[in-house]
Amino acid sequence: MVSGPIKNDMSSKSRLASPEAGAEIAAPTAPLRLQAAKWPDLLAFAIFLGLLILLVLRGASAMDYNWQWTRMMPYIVRNVDGQLIPGLLLKGLRVTLEISFFAMLIALPLGLATALLNLSKRPVSVFIARLYIELIRNTPILLQILIFYFIVAKVIGIDRWWAGVLTLALYEGAFAAEIIRGAILAVSRGQWEAAASLPLGRIDTYRFIVLPQALPLMVPPLTGVLVNVVKHSSIVSVIAIFDLTNEGRSIATDTFMSFEVWLTVAALYLIVTVSLSLVAAWLERKLEHGSST
């Protein structure tokens, strides 16, 4: 019985990895496995990476591509009179981070509220939550941002920046809602019953009993959502917001250095998303440690 709750946690974690969210959940933990890798794995990885680079270089030389990596530097940082100022790509990255930050700031409470509505016993609340989740998950995000920008933003009078943030927040909020709901349902029924019998009220039960136990279960899959916000934020380029992707596109069009530009843009996205995954992994370990001692 002492091992009971722990076993329960493990099984619920795997239960959370539902097919629809599976890919997103698996991704963020992948870089961590490198830490535990043995040298034959690393060797295989090095050979694979070498072959990949070779393939790109050969392809480029077959196309007679003229590599101009040195010309990329000013788009990252520029030296103006001895002062370093951010280049266009870093400015774009900043916009991407700002939009992602505010989108996530809205998406998490939205997801929590939707999950609670979905779990309530009132049919109307459940209907509203399901309607929102199914509408968002079953239409293309590109269509959503166009509808938001050309219709909703005009009706409620917000600018394109907020239209982009809200579209992303609504989109990721729907996925967060399902993750949070799954984590709440994974807390054992006995916990609810013990709280109800004491008695604790419904809000106190969520606040002091259920959510603290659900939180460690949510963190890994919510990291996937966080990474997705950053990646999906590139969609705002279609409503003429100059984020990292859009800056990349305009530089590539101006300079014809498409290989260098897009590879740099990809590297910048990777730096952000991998860092987020690492922070989340650290947080996850901390939460697990805290709940078991």
């Binding site: 019985m1 009971g4 709750p5 019953e193 013990a194 009993i209 136990q213």
Partner: peptide, 15 residues
């Protein structure tokens, strides 16, 4: 429930 206490087979302490 304020009048009644309950003890369960599985203890159900808050871990």
């Amino acid at each position: 429930r304020r009048e009644v206490g309950m003890v369960f087979q599985q203890f159900n302490l808050f871990p």
